Simulated scan of single mutants.
Amino acid sequence: MRRFLRHRRHNDDLTLTFFEIERIIGAPLPKAVGKAEWWSNAPPKDRYEVQRNAWLDAGYHAVPGPKETVTFRRADTSSRPAGSEALSERGAPPEGLRQEASGGTIIK
Score class of each variant (00 low, 15 high):
Arg47His: 11
Ala54Cys: 08
Asp12Met: 11
Glu85Pro: 13
Ala62Thr: 03
Asn41Leu: 06
Arg23Tyr: 02
Leu97Pro: 04
Ile25Trp: 06
Ala82Thr: 09
Ala62Gly: 02
Val50Asp: 15
Ala36Gln: 12
Pro81Trp: 02
Gly65Ser: 07
Pro44Trp: 12
Trp38Gln: 00
Ser40His: 02
Leu87Tyr: 07
Lys67Ala: 12
Gly26Cys: 10
Pro64Tyr: 05
Asn53Gln: 11
Gly104Met: 06
Arg47Glu: 06
Ile106Tyr: 02
Pro28Gly: 11
Thr69Pro: 05
His7Met: 15
Arg80His: 01
Glu89Ile: 11
Pro81Thr: 06
Trp39Leu: 07
Thr69Gly: 01
Tyr60Thr: 03
Ser78Tyr: 07
Val63Phe: 09
Phe4Gly: 07
Arg23Thr: 11
Thr71Arg: 14
Leu29Glu: 12
Trp55Glu: 01
Leu16Gln: 01
Thr105Glu: 11
Glu68Cys: 06
Asn41Pro: 04
Gly59Lys: 10
Leu87Ser: 09
His7Gly: 04
His10Pro: 04
Pro28Ser: 15
Lys31Cys: 01
Glu68Ser: 14
Thr71Gly: 06
Glu49Pro: 06
Pro66Val: 12
Glu85Lys: 15
Arg47Ile: 02
Ala82Val: 09
Trp55Met: 04
Ser84Pro: 01
Ile21Asn: 00
Arg6Ala: 15
Arg2Asp: 12
Asp12Leu: 15
Ala58Ile: 08
Tyr48His: 11
Pro93Asn: 13
Thr69Phe: 01
Ser79Ala: 15
Val50Gly: 14
Ala101Lys: 08
Ala92His: 12
Gly91Lys: 02
Trp39Arg: 04
His10Leu: 14
Pro30Ser: 04
Leu5Ser: 09
Thr105Asn: 12
